[in-house]
């Protein structure tokens, strides 16, 4: 059981229980998180699942690969902790992950 907390731009917190193997994007969509529309369905092709990962999660996660890194560089308001949630697979190590939703996606 992996607990993930999404913090929408208006400060609203949504806590979700994620299953190992799901993508972080799927967890957000299933939990009705506003601002994660993930329009391409997880193909790293649209940039509409951009999020900011904070805390220990950032250390635990593998670094973004080529496609994800390319997209992150050119999303709106990229930061050092920017990720595409469709490219993050849930593992038990990610328990307690905190994810902020960018203002540009609300």
């Amino acid at each position: 059981m992996t607990k993930v907390t999404f913090i929408e731009n208006n400060g609203n917190r949504i806590e979700a229980i994620a299953e190992v193997g799901q993508s972080l994007m799927q967890v957000a969509v299933n939990s009705g998180v506003s601002g994660i529309s993930a329009e391409c369905g997880g193909a790293c092709a649209c940039g509409t699942c951009h999020c900011y990962v904070v805390g220990n999660g950032l250390v635990t996660l593998p670094t973004p690969d080529g496609d994800e890194a390319d997209m992150i560089e050119f999303v709106i308001d990229p930061k050092a902790n920017s990720r595409l949630s469709c490219q993050i697979a849930i593992t038990p190590d990610l328990d307690g992950l905190i994810v902020h939703i960018p203002a540009s996606q609300t």
Binding site: V29, S37, A38, E39, C40, G41, A43, A45, C46
Partner: peptide, 11 residues
């Protein structure tokens, strides 16, 4: 979550 832009690699 519409599909007007398609989906997958051809999005």
């Amino acid at each position: 979550r519409h599909v007007a832009f398609g989906g997958g690699t051809h999005f």
